[in-house]
Each structure stands twice: as C-alpha cells, then as structure tokens.
Amino acid sequence: MNIRGKLIIIGGAVDKGSFTETDLDKNVSNNLNFFEAGILRRVLVEAKHQEKSRIEVITTASKIPREIGPEYIKALNYLGATNVDVLHIERREQATDPEVLERLKAADVVMFTGGDQLRLTSILGGSLFHDILLDKYQNEDFIYAGTSAGAAAASNNMIYQGSSHEALLKGEVKITSGLGLIDGVIIDTHFVQRGRIGRLFQSVVGNPRTLGIGLGEDTGLLITNNSRMEAIGSGLVILVDGRQIKDTNLTEIELGQPISVNNFAVHVLSKFDTYDLKTHKMHIQSSQYI
C-alpha cells in the first residue's frame, strides 16, 4: 500500500525554547538555536503548505495541556507558521465531537505532545477521530508529528510501562496496541538519556521481526511511505534488529528472571543518516568510506 502521509516521531524534550522560564532572554532568537536546522523547522518544510499549513497541536497525552499547548504555538509562530491552534481532547466523547472531527479533517499537520501514551490511546483509540487520522495519513499529503508519548503511540505495538534498570527481566516491559500508523516497529523515547536499551531488547526478542526504534531527546525520524527513515535533530537514533537472533532463554525462564539473547544487531543513526524498512539497508550520510 502506498502511504501518502509522512510520519515525524521525536524522542522528547524538543528544543523549542521554554518560554515559561523566568531567566529567558527577551530576544527570543537567542534561546532558540534549535529552530533554523531543527525538528520543528523540518516539520514546516515537509508540510503541504509549509508555514501556511493548518497545524493542530493535540495535548491529549499531557497532564498539563493548558500549559504545554501555548508553548508549541509560540514556537511554531516564531518559525513563521501562521495557522496554528491547540486541540484539547481530554475525554473520550470529545473524540466523536463534530467540531473536533472537522478540525482534524482540515488539518495539514497534527502535532501530538508528550505525556502518557496510554492516556493518549485509551482516549483516541478506536474512535471516529482515530479512523479519520488513519485515513488522512494513508491517503493525503498529511503529517503526523509526535514527540515522546506522541511518538511511542504511533506504531501498532506500543511500550507503555517498564523501568530501565529492570528492563531485561522477563515480564517487566509492558506492551499494548498503539495508534497503528506504522507496522513492524516498536518505538521508545528519551532513549539515550534514560538508558532504555533494555526495554527495546525485551520488546524485540519476543517478536524478532519487529524493529526496535530508540529515539534520543531532541532527535527524531522522518518516515516516508512507511519505509524510508531519515534521522533528524541533534542526537542519536538506535535501531535494534532481532532478525538474526540465534538463541534466547525467553520461554524457559520464569517471570522476573534475566533474559539472555545471542546475536542482536544494533545500528546507530545521526542526522541525515537513513534506513529503509523494506530492504533493511542503512546509509551513513558522512561515511568515512566514501
């Protein structure tokens, strides 16, 4: 199936400038060195009408939606976006509200903020809003952008719980269904900063066909046609490929016992590097061998 939409998934802590800090420089540009070459700039570059695109910031995952929404509006406005608003969906019945659905239909970009991905999927999953979102992503020149929880929820399978230090004990990582925009991957966020490699290892060893994607903070992937992935932002993307696993003790141990795995493949991408989900080929933009 040819997917017309684009997926931009971000590891969290997007460097959009914190306009609420009391010691912020009054000259906004001094606080926002991220913008010119960063992730939010790339969202606008990729959007259908660029700065004139209709953008809806969706705060469903957040416990402080009224505070976080205006942050994104200010950041996107600073970049030149002229048609940005916040869509607060805090209860499941709002996901069928005609006004809400019309705003989604009119959007060129939806930007899902961070928070709790289980809150996000439990409110939106299986709703009319979810149906329209999937249809737009599959059939229109449309961008789903999500940071932190918004990124983790984008795939079919979604990690929603599991501590970093106990992640390689059987049963410590909890997985449920996400929003289903992309299949064959599982996404974790704040990856490098919170030491979450073990969470991806356990997620992938249970189904080695699934590619684990670990997104560092202020780092993301631009995914086109559900296949070509390009690293964007300032940090690292870690890919965990389990297709070549030779052995594991996963089914022989009790819950809470350590998991052994032989022969994971791990790839590390930085800005402009690409990986193709169909061919499983990686291209390093600044390779020392070219």
Rank of each mutant, 00 (worst) to 15 (best):
T113M: 00
V268R: 04
L215V: 09
V173M: 09
G150N: 05
N157S: 08
I68D: 01
K52H: 00
D218N: 15
E99F: 15
N83M: 06
R196F: 04
I39R: 11
D131P: 00
L179I: 12
E166R: 14
E217C: 13
N262P: 12
K246G: 15
L236A: 11
N2M: 10
A153I: 10
V266P: 08
I238T: 14
R194S: 08
F201Y: 00
G235M: 12
E93T: 07
G38M: 10
L124G: 09
V110F: 08
R42D: 06
L120C: 12
Q257G: 00
T20D: 14
I73F: 00
E67T: 12
V173A: 03
P208L: 01
G126C: 14
V28Y: 01
A106Y: 10
K136M: 00
Y137K: 09
T210I: 15
Q244K: 14
R199I: 04
R91H: 12
N262K: 13
I197R: 03
E99V: 09
L239T: 14
I39L: 04
I143V: 08
I8Y: 01
T121V: 13
S227M: 11
H190R: 11
T96G: 11
G17A: 03
F264A: 02
H88L: 07
T219N: 07
S287Q: 13
L181P: 04
G212I: 00
P208C: 03
G171L: 05
Q50K: 11
G256R: 14
I232H: 03
T82E: 09
R92K: 15
Q288S: 09
L24V: 15
K278V: 12
G115E: 06
D241T: 01
K271Q: 06
S260D: 11
I175K: 01
K281A: 07
N249E: 14
T219M: 01
T274Y: 02
L101P: 04
S122N: 14
I132K: 04
R41W: 02
Y289V: 15
R199A: 02
H165C: 08
G17C: 03
P258N: 10
N262V: 11
G256C: 10
G146F: 11
L101R: 03
S127W: 07
Y137W: 14
V173Y: 06
D276H: 06
F272N: 13
N30I: 14
S155M: 04
I9P: 07
T113N: 01
E93I: 08
S164H: 10
S177N: 13
E254R: 15
Y144C: 01
L255E: 07
R54K: 15
T189S: 03
L87V: 12
G216Y: 02
N225M: 05
I58K: 12
D141N: 14
D188N: 00
S53R: 07
H165L: 00
L215G: 02
R119T: 05
T121Q: 08
V86K: 02
F19M: 12
A265H: 06
I159Y: 00
L134D: 03
T251Q: 13
V109G: 00
D218F: 05
I290D: 15
K26D: 13
L32G: 01
G180Y: 13
Y144F: 06
E67C: 03
S270K: 10
L40K: 08
M229T: 08
S163N: 14
I232Y: 04
F142D: 03
